[in-house]
Write a protein that binds this DNA or RNA. Structure first.
Lengths: 104, 104
DNA sequence: TTTTGTGATTAGAAAACTTAATCATATGAC
DNA sequence: GTCATATGATTAAGTTTTCTAATCACAAAA
């Protein structure tokens, strides 16, 4: 989830004021904030710049909480979860197993 | 400028193989790589994950490829990357291995 | 009450995206 | 040499997404 609402309200700004800075209509900015539509990469960078955060943070990617990893499948999330605190040797074994695929 | 070409060629992968992992056509991936079109935020995250870099780096906003993924170790990023497109049975085997030997 | 400021919503137009099919090349096998 | 295969680029058409002006609903202030 994109972090526009918290960033904007922290600065006590209206949707219209941020929209004007971004050169879009208030309706467009509202759509971004409510995830009805998505800003372009260029707009993401401009927003990150304006709010003084990284794009990773802006789009909720740099947060390490598990709930943010919705882009992963259930199996991938399970694997990632299990890798936390796992023995490095065991992790290497997993890497070896997964690397055995040769279908590039 | 999005850094897809260098990330893909470094790994000696074809456009078709990456496109398949991303569940898009080769033409679509080609458009991303040549900046004719842009991936969605969700797709950007999937690409960053697959190539093991931050979104900021992927889109050329940051020079550091490591920046915002410090919450994952190198091994974890490698494992996560390898799980993309891996056989579900292989993923289940990995889950079993990690579950059976990991201390809680 | 009237005005002002706010975020949400709508419909239609515009822009962007996706894809199958195809093209042009290059490489390797025979 | 010919043929087959693999690659990235391109096209055209359909689809999806995005954008905006206008408007709505609500709240607060004048």
């Amino acid at each position: 989830m994109i972090r526009l609402f918290e960033l904007r309200t922290e600065k006590e700004l209206s949707q219209r004021s941020v929209a004007k800075i971004m050169n879009v209509s208030q309706g467009t900015y509202n759509n971004w904030e409510n995830s009805n539509t998505q800003p372009s990469i260029e707009q993401l960078i401009a927003l990150a710049n304006f709010f003084g955060v990284s794009v990773d943070y802006l789009i909720g990617y740099s947060d390490s909480s598990e709930s943010d990893k919705n882009y992963l499948t259930e199996r991938q999330r399970e694997i990632l979860k299990l890798t936390y605190g796992a023995d490095p040797k065991l992790q290497d074994a997993v890497i070896t197993i997964l690397s055995s695929r040769t279908d590039k």
